[in-house]
Amino acid sequence: MLEVRNVDAGYGSTVILQDVSLRVEEGEVVTIVGANGAGKTTTLRTISGLVTPKTGGVFFEGEEISKLQPHAVVDRGITLIPEGRQLFPDMSVRENLLMGAHRRDARGVRSETLDEVLGLFPRLGERLDQHASSLSGGEQQMVAIARGMMARPRLLMFDEPSLGLAPIIVEQVFDVISKVAASGMTVLIVEQNVWHTLKAADRGYVLENGEMVLDDAADALLENDHVRQAYLGI
């Protein structure tokens, strides 16, 4: 479904990613784990069209998307839930969710999607008319995830969904991600919380200093010596 092929990418003259390749098949939950600064976010931003690769390409269902503007990538069915939530602060929760359904394919069915999404996030149903900026960090993360789902994407990407959240909220966020994945959504997650992510994923990649050093089934990575020492502290 998604293929990143031999991508070098960065900002200005700074190279972050070197020869990065990865694949995500339909229905899979794939994760990219790695330390802070390894290039995980840059990988997602490259897929989203926010960063244009210097060499290599990004392909979605056989079409090269690496030269497209971000809004065109969203139209193809790829939605990124960005790090740090990035809600629209002066809009209500309802308006934030409606903005998620801006994509042409999602706009016509947005009230049905809203009902479905609120089924998954019952707490947000009580907060629809509140300003997004008045919510707690955990609630804001839930709005960000729900907003991403409102686009009815074919591939949903999460950038550090547990960042800055209390441990109990982290559990809730991963519960939700598991539910989203169980509904058949194809998911790509980037996380520093390696144990939780690998538990939720089918396959994983390990990114170090902008290069893919490992890829394997998620349970195999949980048993891998390098992963255990470097990321799980076991």
Binding site: L50, Q69, T79, M99
Partner: peptide, 23 residues
């Protein structure tokens, strides 16, 4: 919808682009 997209772009341009808005 267009008005909302305009406000969204003003409030957080990066997030608006991720919603599929042509900023």
């Amino acid at each position: 919808n267009t008005g909302r997209a305009i406000r969204a772009t003003a409030q957080n341009r990066a997030a608006a682009r991720l919603m599929g808005i042509n900023d």
